Simulated assay, not measured.
Amino acid sequence: MPPMNLVPVNGTIQNISAFGNNCCQQQVTIRNSDGIQNFIIHPGTYVIEEIRLHPGMNVTAFYDANLPIPLIFPPQYQTVFIGRRNPAETIYAGNFDESLLSLDGTLQLNLGRSTNIVTSNGQPYNCSPGGQLLIVYYTTTTRSVPPQTTPRKVIVIC
């Protein structure tokens, strides 16, 4: 199976509603400078830290650009990950190699003593996170190519 091509969308939740007749799915409407986009939250969606989503919350939602997307307006995506966004922080999700370089070559991680590395259920992760799908929280990067960062938090999706 090829790695997911995760695309982030930052914005503010405008509305949350039921999606169709399925009580296990919700549609979250997000507004940002690009307009309105709808995200389907389904049982396979990972809601980071299991937060309760609500209108007015700043979030980052990730969808897999390799999956088919219906040609409707506003766009409607199947959500892979969604989590609260701190405006001073960036959230990146993607696959990393053993040297902690993202497979798309856009981010190099330098883990520090203060980097909190956990599994998706919040438990400490005591192995190297290289070669895994990671959700990374960071504030600044170098101007090198690829940009390097020492993240605040890394969530390993096992």
Rank of each mutant, 00 (worst) to 15 (best):
V80Y: 01
P68L: 10
V28W: 08
I91Q: 04
T60L: 03
L109P: 00
I40H: 05
G56R: 08
S99Q: 15
T106K: 15
Q37M: 13
A93F: 06
R113E: 15
T79V: 02
Y63R: 10
L103P: 04
T60D: 02
A88M: 12
A18F: 09
G105V: 09
N110E: 11
I16N: 05
N21K: 14
R85D: 05
S114A: 13
A93L: 11
M57D: 04
T79P: 06
L100F: 10
S33F: 10
C23E: 11
A61L: 01
V59M: 01
M57P: 00
G112M: 09
Q27W: 00
I41E: 09
L109I: 03
P43E: 10
T60Y: 00
P68R: 07
T115S: 12
G44I: 02
T45N: 11
T60S: 14
Y92L: 10
R31H: 12
G83I: 00
I91G: 01
A65F: 08
S114P: 02
I16A: 07
A93N: 04
P87W: 12
F81N: 01
G83R: 06
P43D: 12
C23G: 12
L109V: 09
G105I: 10
G94N: 05
R52D: 10
N32I: 05
A88W: 09
L107E: 02
F73I: 05
Y63K: 08
E50D: 15
G44N: 14
E50I: 00
N22S: 13
V28F: 07
S99K: 13
R52V: 12
F96L: 09
Y92N: 06
Y46V: 11
P55Y: 07
G112K: 10
